[in-house]
Amino acid sequence: MSKKFILGVGFTFIIAIVSILLSNLPILNKVGALAIAIITAILYRHFKGYPTQIESGVVFSSKKLLRLAIILYGLKLNLSTIVNEGGTLLLLDVGVVTFVIFFIILLNKIIKGDKDLVLLLGVGTGVCGAAAIAAISPILKSKESDVGISVGLVAIMGTIFSLTYTLLYALFPMDPEVYGIWSGASLHEIAHVILAADAGGTEALSIGLLTKLGRVFLLIPLSIIFLVIVNRKKSNKVSQKIDFPYFLIGFLVMSAINTFVPIPESVLNVISTFTTLILIMAMVGIGLNVSFNDIKAKAFKPMIAMAITSIVLSVITFFITSIL
């Protein structure tokens, strides 16, 4: 390992740790370490430029650590719980993911926004935020700048919505189960569901996480669907190599292990903390590839499409969950 490689990985590690510490402060604890890390990396790129001297380590964090984080993310998923206890919720989740992706693409087409970016935003909004974007982006051959922008926007948008949900619950009390399902079916990241649903108590949080994990589960078939579509769009050369994101197999294996192998809660907590850390490090590396010019040129219209989609999704899922 070269010194530049170690310094590059260390650089993303330091910003990740600082982001985690900042996320414990008042106000910033509502934003989350992921969004703080992305914003910090973008600001660093803007004022200091891309750190080319330690690029090898930064690239390692943005690519290799990202894939490792996605693999370990599978340990958050219990396949049997979702299938056995959340059949109705899983159907709701299928409708949510399908609606979000098609609706945001339609809106973006009307306002003529960036197609590549809006697809990542649709997957992030419909499925599970940064994890979904990170899993789908290699299949779509997305630029790292697009990945960074979409992750940052989904993180910030999800934070705004989760805080809004908490406020609405305080002003207009509703059945905790309804509130939990609504949060799990419509909010962007698992962290956003926890932030919002926790206001409704244990019942709301439990059902909210079950609903959200159904959407995480759908990342597996959705990835396969995108893989098939992308490869069909390529040239019809029989000898053409099919690019498969093999780390998704790791994600599925980890999900199966968590489903069928008893793992102590303390071990899962340690792995979860490690997963969060390397995911934030990966986001730092990705954020360093984002410039404000990219955001101004590409992100405004897709961001509008995502905001409208998120609002419509919230309204529709609220009425659906009210009658379930």
Results as ranks from 00 to 15, higher is better:
residue 274 F to H: 04
residue 277 L to Y: 14
residue 247 F to R: 08
residue 279 L to C: 06
residue 281 M to P: 08
residue 290 V to L: 03
residue 286 I to F: 04
residue 282 A to M: 09
residue 263 I to Y: 03
residue 253 V to Y: 02
residue 258 N to K: 12
residue 264 P to Q: 15
residue 291 S to D: 04
residue 290 V to G: 05
residue 253 V to Q: 09
residue 277 L to K: 09
residue 259 T to D: 06
residue 273 T to E: 07
residue 267 V to G: 05
residue 283 M to D: 05
residue 257 I to N: 03
residue 286 I to Y: 04
residue 270 V to A: 02
residue 254 M to Q: 05
residue 257 I to A: 01
residue 276 T to H: 10
residue 268 L to M: 14
residue 252 L to A: 15
residue 272 S to P: 03
residue 263 I to G: 06
residue 248 L to V: 14
residue 284 V to I: 11
residue 267 V to N: 03
residue 283 M to F: 06
residue 259 T to R: 11
residue 256 A to T: 07
residue 258 N to M: 06
residue 272 S to K: 08
residue 289 N to I: 02
residue 287 G to W: 01
residue 263 I to W: 05
residue 250 G to E: 02
residue 244 F to Y: 15
residue 243 D to T: 07
residue 288 L to G: 06
residue 282 A to S: 14
residue 288 L to E: 11
residue 283 M to R: 04
residue 249 I to W: 02
residue 273 T to M: 02
residue 255 S to Y: 09
residue 272 S to R: 12
residue 249 I to C: 11
residue 266 S to D: 09
residue 263 I to L: 14
residue 273 T to W: 00
residue 267 V to A: 11
residue 267 V to H: 04
residue 274 F to R: 06
residue 286 I to V: 15
residue 267 V to Q: 12
residue 261 V to G: 11
residue 244 F to E: 14
residue 287 G to M: 10
residue 286 I to R: 09
residue 271 I to L: 11
residue 264 P to I: 10
residue 246 Y to G: 07
residue 284 V to S: 13
residue 244 F to T: 13
residue 288 L to W: 12
residue 255 S to C: 04
residue 247 F to T: 00
residue 253 V to E: 08
residue 260 F to Q: 07
residue 285 G to H: 08
residue 245 P to S: 08
residue 287 G to P: 07
residue 275 T to Y: 04
residue 252 L to R: 06
residue 288 L to R: 13
residue 268 L to K: 15
residue 275 T to W: 00
residue 262 P to Y: 14
residue 287 G to H: 04
residue 267 V to P: 03
residue 269 N to H: 13
residue 260 F to E: 09
residue 243 D to A: 02
residue 274 F to G: 00
residue 251 F to N: 01
residue 266 S to W: 01
residue 271 I to H: 05
